[in-house]
């Protein structure tokens, strides 16, 4: 059975979740999951920071394991140097034992690995525009 970690962006009202196999997920993989689930992967001018929701401590160590069922706060901040944010590093980094297998937010689902989320979205959008009468 898949495990989950709950997260919300600091300003958001509602929580979403990232699902994975195992008893915990690394900070690296959780960041990667959140980046993909929220389509932040092309965003080079921001960094994504994660915090423990009860202590407000930032998770600075990417290898730290967050136990399943935890709640995490995410925060988008400007990259210290514009265009040099760390997001591409998380998107590119693949090797991991606890890679997110699937996820579902409240009403959203994470793109499956290998599915070109970008072109997929454009296709959807195009359909949407074209099929609207007038």
């Amino acid at each position: 059975m898949a495990s989950s970690v709950y997260y919300k962006f600091k300003a958001q009202k509602d929580e979403s979740k990232i699902s994975f196999d195992g008893t915990g997920i690394s900070v690296f993989d959780l960041k990667k999951g959140i980046i993909l689930a929220n389509n932040l992967k092309d965003n080079r001018d921001v960094d994504l920071l994660l915090y423990d929701s009860s202590s407000n401590q930032e998770y600075k160590d990417d290898s730290h394991i967050i136990p399943r069922s935890s709640s995490v706060i995410a925060r988008r901040v400007p990259a210290s140097r514009p265009g040099k944010g760390k997001i591409p590093m998380y998107v590119a980094g693949g090797a991991s034992t606890t890679a997110p297998a699937s996820s579902s937010g409240h009403g959203g689902s994470m793109p499956m690995p290998g599915r070109g989320a970008m072109s997929m979205r454009f296709d959807n959008k195009r359909e949407e525009i074209a099929s609207k009468p007038q």
Partner: peptide, 16 residues
């Protein structure tokens, strides 16, 4: 230049 969440201002830094 962005879509979705990436296009938002840095709203996490304010208690709305």
């Amino acid at each position: 230049a962005y879509e979705g969440l990436a296009s938002l201002p840095f709203i996490d830094d304010l208690d709305w």
